[in-house]
Design a binder for these strands. Structure first.
Lengths: 155, 155
DNA sequence: CAGTAATAGTTGCAATCGCAACCAAGTCAA
DNA sequence: TTGACTTGGTTGCGATTGCAACTATTACTG
């Protein structure tokens, strides 16, 4: 057989997980700076806030399921947000292990503020790559996320 | 004005940075398990190794520039890889601050092994979403990465 | 009902990260 | 040359992570 090229050399720059990661970091960075500077929030805190802002009230478990964040991470983010007075907990009457989380008035304000900014940021991002392309990208990403690890593995 | 919908509520699930991050994590996870289990490497170590595997020899600085990884992260990854006998350093004759990094024989072996696996993993991933779609995704991601933060900002 | 297994959430600890401060070497200008 | 500035790389340290162990509560199962 030909001696020219070996069985295709691996190139990090073509590796999908790497590209995704780079893109994720590139796009997260600037917005991360926003909520960190303005409200001293971590990424997980921002995500928990966003989920609560969207869904109203839910348990930590729900947040884990929806956003695929480790439960310890959620737990600590919740503590942080509570300390900052952005959310409150209430033991569920049905299940006294579970705590129903909801945003406080202030939490809703912060969510409204950051939500707007995020929206603007997102639109700018999408404008950059073109709206149709962005829509397509959306679909692809969702598929990747849904399919889980290659091969449809479980974990 | 209409009272129906407010100025569009923010939805995390539609937020591009979030989607990218989810996709990145979903796709990284399983491969991360591979190099961690097999060689006890961290992600940064794997990336440094991959860069050296591709480019032959380079300085830590080069790696930083190419892969946008923090220099402290690179520094520690390099130490780790050196300890494990996968790479060696040599002070640059031109600039005695700089160290020229190159893979050892063993390092090249490991790269060959992981490179193959990564290639296979990547192909499986691409097969899942369809080859043309994958190619398109590639382009979009590269654009996002290149453009940097929305608005073409610098940092 | 006792007894075991699952589940919601927290905590401890070791490893990792990010940022600032820090050396050591190189550059540039007077 | 000397002194101010830049640059390659490392180190210290507080904050964040991930994983395993743990508490409290609920759900099964005989």
């Amino acid at each position: 057989m030909a001696e020219g090229k070996r069985p295709a050399d691996f190139d990090l720059e073509q590796f999908l997980p790497y590209l995704l990661n780079q893109a994720a970091e590139a796009t997260s960075k600037s917005f991360h700076a926003t909520y960190k500077a303005t409200y001293g929030m971590t990424r997980t805190q921002w995500r928990v806030l966003a989920n609560l802002g969207k869904f109203g009230s839910m348990t930590a478990r729900d947040i884990c399921l929806i956003s695929h964040i480790e439960k310890t991470k959620v737990s600590r983010a919740v503590s942080g947000l509570e300390e900052d007075g952005l959310l409150s907990r209430a033991t569920s009457p049905q299940d006294r292990r579970a705590e129903i989380l909801s945003l406080t008035e202030r939490g809703r304000e912060v969510f409204a503020d950051l939500g707007q900014r995020a929206l603007a940021y997102d639109m700018a991002l999408r404008a950059q790559i073109g709206p149709e392309m962005a829509a397509q990208l959306d679909g692809l990403l969702r598929r990747i996320i849904a399919d889980g690890p290659a091969g449809g593995g479980e974990d």
